[in-house]
Design a protein around this nucleic acid. Structure first.
Lengths: 409, 409
DNA sequence: ATGAATTTGTTGTGCCGGACGACAGTCTGG
DNA sequence: CCAGACTGTCGTCCGGCACAACAAATTCAT
């Protein structure tokens, strides 16, 4: 969390330095290689101050100097030397725990996936089994990491409700998990102690799309995630909407039709009973074992059936409730909603326009994810990297060097 | 908006001072008279620094020294001198524009209403007529203001959609206004030029309840406002949820029952058609001209009718959607919902428990407004005071002294 | 081609703000 | 009455950023 969100505390000079170092890093992280001059104008600080900040980050091994770009060079004057993420700089482990598979990646600053591995996950597998599988993937992924590169932390994307205070998985319906401390399980299987952070997959999708996907530049966005269940990650004012316990965004259980079907949550007519994966699978006669790959199944269609059109209308109408409530600038349709929207986009738009209020409707645009299927994975990397932007020096202090040999030993 | 929300900018020493001065002021504003020692521990700064900050605010005429409280004195040691809002310090004008009446108040730091006046407003009155009436109330309210006390700004609470960027009233259904620049109208009628800030009444109710009402200490709250329409003000992470255009919180048009009644927005079965004032009035056979005082009408009941019980259930069921989506810690039932909840609280609770997910349900509590009917008025004062907390020196620089004689001249 | 203009990097200096330590003042408790 | 505890005040110091001056590298005009 940005220090900007601190509430009643005072600021001292130490905090300035922390904040400015972190902000420099955040800019290079999100915009990629850039010049000191750009940093100067972005941050509103003096040239010499920026030079000092960049110099400190270089001596920490986080950034490195880049020769002036040979490419387009506009305007007169001395060309500004570039600044970029260091090659052997700090990295994090990102884990995207899906319903049917787990993806693990080693991700550096700048959101670059340096290495990745994945494995299928047993449906209804025990948490310790999944944890062991993830740990094996982690070992594979850090194998080629440079010994000098420090591991800053680990982020895990979970298809379920995660308690904000301690990262406990309260409920993951499709894994059939209740109150699982998955972070601890993975760390125990690894025999490692690094900061680990868990969050809901839709929340992380929103975060990643906001940082480097279709939502760049918009501080009000909703990432609607269609996996087996329906959830939303919400960014307002540039920050994740978490809620008191961390459970915000459970839009799948919005009331949609009181006379509708029974939902697994026990109520009737939740939105998920209309636009959830099982509902869509039933509408298109998709076999039950293919439900987890509903996106691919939908991709194989070239013309939408009437049932799919109705689903599109329901999607748009439900979105209208979200738009009325949040007044977002962008709504990103992730998971199988990407495939669904490419099939029945007009119906979705019509359903939305029909039921949204004019004022919020005029400022919203629907978009597809800019990061494809990696939104949640990269979001997991983002939350793991976050401490670096709050206080780079402190984050490096708790980081672990030469992880590979530690894991081997 | 708090400086805490700045995004990518750097911080310099000037900003530190601004921030710390503002934070001191914010603490005294929200907690009332306090000692320097308390400020020291709250803000984590050194004693001498706090002394310097308080001294500067005293010399600006914002704070004043208070003798050590005679009351309970705990622990040994030298008693700490108090700090409180100065008697003739800066103030703002707060306007609560209702459907049937306008309330105008002169409000000082600390949220103290120093003077107030109100007048009925013509139903379907022209904006310039209402503006003139408000201007007259403003004149009345500043009449006895000390000449040395500066006017910092004006905040206006509006029952409708307000564009965030410029404060334009896009739509106020019950006043039948479209695209009215009410701030400009009032300023023109006054012949004064002060910073003026407009916002939705529910948003301001949430803000006020968060600062000094039932929502103190909770950073995730929803203020559900029942006036003629139904709207919500939402605080997440301690900040107002505004949305891209400023229209967030239009929960009255959540889809509730697709086979329900037609709503004035053109759709069927909006939540407002079940729990809106007109719906309730119809259910209890309240004459149409009393709809604007629905709260008082409900207060006269001592036993709920079956129709009211059904309304309570619908209220709870709709709240469940909000709770699932936002995972708030507190939901405050303002406007006529206060009276409704005292009548049919059990039904509301049951409807909520029936349809909310277990995890968000366990952390939410329903509450009545702690500020009575003044929530929106005090919220209007809060947004007008906000510049003082961002930069006290600058805000005083643009403030106007001796308003009364200026208005007379 | 050459000098002027422009822009950036570098260095040294100064200012400002908060931290810290020492001392004084005022209370509680024995 | 004295020891202990806590707060306010003062002077000093340190760290961070701004600023000015200079050097370096490039573009543009003649």
């Amino acid at each position: 969390m940005s220090p900007q969100r601190r509430t009643g505390l005072g600021t001292n000079q130490e905090a300035i330095r922390r904040h400015n170092l972190g902000t420099v890093l955040r800019h290079v992280h999100s915009a990629g290689e850039m010049s000191r001059a750009e940093l100067t104008s972005l941050m509103g600080l003096n040239r010499s101050t920026i030079a000092g900040l960049v110099g400190e980050l270089e001596s920490l091994g986080i950034l490195e100097r880049a020769d002036p770009a040979e490419g387009v060079r506009q305007g007169a004057g001395r060309p500004s030397a570039g600044v970029r993420i260091a090659a052997d700089g700090p990295y994090v482990i990102a884990v995207d725990l899906g319903v049917d598979r787990a993806v693990v990646a080693r991700v550096g600053l700048g959101g670059q996936v340096l290495q990745r591995a994945q494995a299928p996950v047993q449906a209804e597998g025990e948490a310790w089994q999944v944890g062991a599988a993830v740990a094996a993937l982690v070992r594979a992924v850090v194998e080629d990491a440079p010994a000098v590169a420090p591991l800053v932390g680990m982020g895990i994307s979970v298809p379920g409700l995660v308690r904000r205070s301690d990262g406990l998985i309260r409920l993951a319906p499709n894994l059939e998990w209740h109150d699982v401390s998955f972070g601890g399980i993975v760390l125990a299987a690894l025999g490692l102690d690094v900061p680990v952070c868990l969050a809901n997959d839709a929340d992380l999708g929103a975060l990643a799309e906001h940082t480097r996907g279709s939502g760049v530049g918009t501080d009000e966005l909703i990432y609607l995630s269609g996996n087996v269940g329906v959830g939303a990650g919400i960014i307002t004012g540039g920050h994740r909407l978490e809620g008191a316990g961390g459970y915000a965004g459970e839009v799948g259980h919005l009331r949609f039709d009181p006379d509708g079907h029974t939902c697994h949550c026990g109520n009737r007519g939740c939105w998920e009973t209309e636009v959830g994966a099982h509902a869509i699978a039933a509408a298109i006669a998709c076999p039950p074992d293919k439900v987890v790959q509903l996106g691919e199944v939908l991709d194989s269609f070239d013309k939408p059936s009437p049932a799919l059109r109705a689903t599109g209308t329901a999607l748009g109408q439900g979105l209208a409730s979200l738009v009325n409530m949040f007044n977002p600038q962008t709504v990103i349709l992730g998971g199988y909603f990407r495939a669904l929207y490419t099939l029945v986009g007009p119906e979705v738009n019509a359903g939305l326009a029909e039921r949204a209020l004019p004022a919020p409707l005029e400022s919203v645009t629907l978009a597809l994810p800019g990061l494809g299927a990696d939104s949640s994975l990269l979001g997991a990397a983002e939350i793991a990297l976050e401490p670096l932007f709050v206080d780079p020096v402190a984050a490096l202090g708790t980081a672990i060097d030469d992880v590979h040999s530690r894991l081997a030993g």
